[in-house]
């Protein structure tokens, strides 16, 4: 394993470097951040998803379960510039089926860049 794979940031996939690049290209974007988790959550606190006005995105705030909702909320945040706090949890009626592997709740803060 090359030390550079883990020691040097990956400019293409790193969400915050992506956000800065998009900003320099004049693209409007939003940054979503996991600020709190309860139970088993797929991505740790501090994880980022960045979204542009066309719905392009980089990074993750979950294992893919909530990204769709975050991306659509991000469109509003980019449009009106009002940050949002979102809370996600497994819906009660399905909780029994998902078991321990993904039974968590997460809180995600979505804000516009600039």
């Amino acid at each position: 394993m090359a030390i550079n794979e883990t020691v040097v940031l990956d400019a293409e996939r790193d969400p915050l470097l992506t956000a800065e690049r998009w900003m320099k290209q004049g693209r409007h974007c939003a940054i979503a951040t996991v600020v709190e988790t309860w139970g088993s959550a797929p991505r740790p606190v501090g994880s980022h998803l960045v979204i542009d006005a066309e719905g392009n995105f980089q990074g993750s705030v979950s294992g893919g379960c909530v990204e769709g909702a975050v991306i659509s909320e991000a469109a509003d945040v980019i449009a009106d510039g009002a940050p949002k706090m979102l809370e996600f949890g497994v819906a009660d009626e399905t909780a029994w089926r998902v078991g321990l592997s993904c039974g968590g709740r997460i809180r995600v803060y979505v804000e516009r860049l600039g």
Binding site: K84, M85, L86, E87, F88, V90, A91, R107
Partner: peptide, 10 residues
């Protein structure tokens, strides 16, 4: 699987 979510504040 389904996730329920709410906007805590805006």
């Amino acid at each position: 699987m389904r996730w329920a979510y709410s906007r805590l504040c805006r």
